[in-house]
């Protein structure tokens, strides 16, 4: 059965009824791929693409609120460097028009570009169901390989992002565009000069490197401290060898990318 609610309340009502038997459909960039390959055949679809409020972007007191269906194309135009660059590194223009930030979070791919950028931004997610609304730091949202804190009746309705972080983003792949990352890195410096380092494709979920972050928060950003932080990053990540690259290479290149991004942030 295919449902096309026109507002969030209707969508939540449907989800509450159908739970796991109702699949949210927005960009389709994961779900429909699986369907095309015969690997998914949801019983019910709840199409979220006809809910205008889910595409909204608002700014309140220095915090950006992205509704769940904000697309990569929309995020590519935001003045938040790591998120914009991450979004523009996703697929081609067609995918960027389709794919949504909530979809990226909910899929919880270890290679999620948007997710990784949001992790570095200390983003929070708003999860809503007919039971109510809760707000969760993104770090607590990812539970494991393609596992999230999303309850069967919940929807990601909003993402909150600070606008006063200084950030950057880099991605490593085999070609110039449309890469699933071998490794992707987002870094940020908070107004309190704390550092955030998030990586994709180096663990079961996008992850933060807390030890390296703490070390830098304590010791400041210099060539030497960055060098030591890079060593820490290489120890904190646990990539696997797959058909994209070996674990050794991912560990190595993660360090290079983190170092380059931090050095360029310092220079800015």
């Amino acid at each position: 059965m295919f449902y096309q609610p026109k507002d969030i309340q209707k969508a939540l009502g449907l989800k509450a009824e159908l739970k796991e038997r109702g699949a949210f459909l927005a960009g389709g960039t994961d779900l429909v791929v699986l369907m095309n390959h015969g690997k998914a055949a949801p019983e019910n679809f709840i199409d979220l693409t006809h809910i205008p409020e889910l595409r909204a972007i608002h700014k309140h007191n220095g915090t950006l609120e992205l509704a769940g269906n904000v697309t990569y194309a929309q995020m590519g135009k935001l003045p938040i460097r790591c998120l914009a660059r991450a979004s523009l590194s996703v697929g081609g223009p067609g995918i960027r028009e389709l794919g949504t930030i909530a979809g990226n979070l909910a899929t919880a791919s270890p290679a999620g570009d948007g997710s990784t950028a949001l992790l570095a931004l200390d983003a929070e997610v708003e999860l809503t169901s007919v039971r109510g609304t809760r707000r969760l730091p993104l770090e607590e949202f990812f539970l494991g390989y393609r596992k999230t804190a999303l309850a069967p009746d919940e929807m990601i309705t909003k993402i909150f992002i600070p606008t006063n972080y200084q950030t950057d983003w880099a991605k490593n792949g085999k070609r110039g565009a449309m890469n699933i990352s071998i490794v992707a890195v987002a870094v940020a410096i908070t107004p309190k000069k704390e550092v955030r380092i998030a990586l994709a494709s180096v663990a079961a979920t996008p992850i933060r490197c807390y030890q390296a972050e703490k070390f830098l928060a304590k010791n400041g950003l210099t060539t030497e401290t960055i060098r030591q932080a890079v060593q820490s990053v290489r120890g904190e990540i646990k990539p696997i060898t797959d058909h994209r690259a070996s674990a050794d290479y991912k560990v190595h290149v993660s360090g290079v990318m983190v170092r380059r991004l931090l050095e360029s942030l310092v220079k800015q």
């Binding site: 960009g27 960039t29 095309n36 199409d47 194309a73 223009p93 067609g94 995918i95 028009e97």
Partner: peptide, 22 residues
């Protein structure tokens, strides 16, 4: 799977991969 763009159509003027839309 959205990786080649052969299926592009314009939806409200925006390019989209019609293979990924129902």
């Amino acid at each position: 799977e959205g990786e080649c763009g052969s299926c592009y159509v314009l939806v409200d003027g925006k390019p989209m991969n019609s293979c990924l839309m129902l």
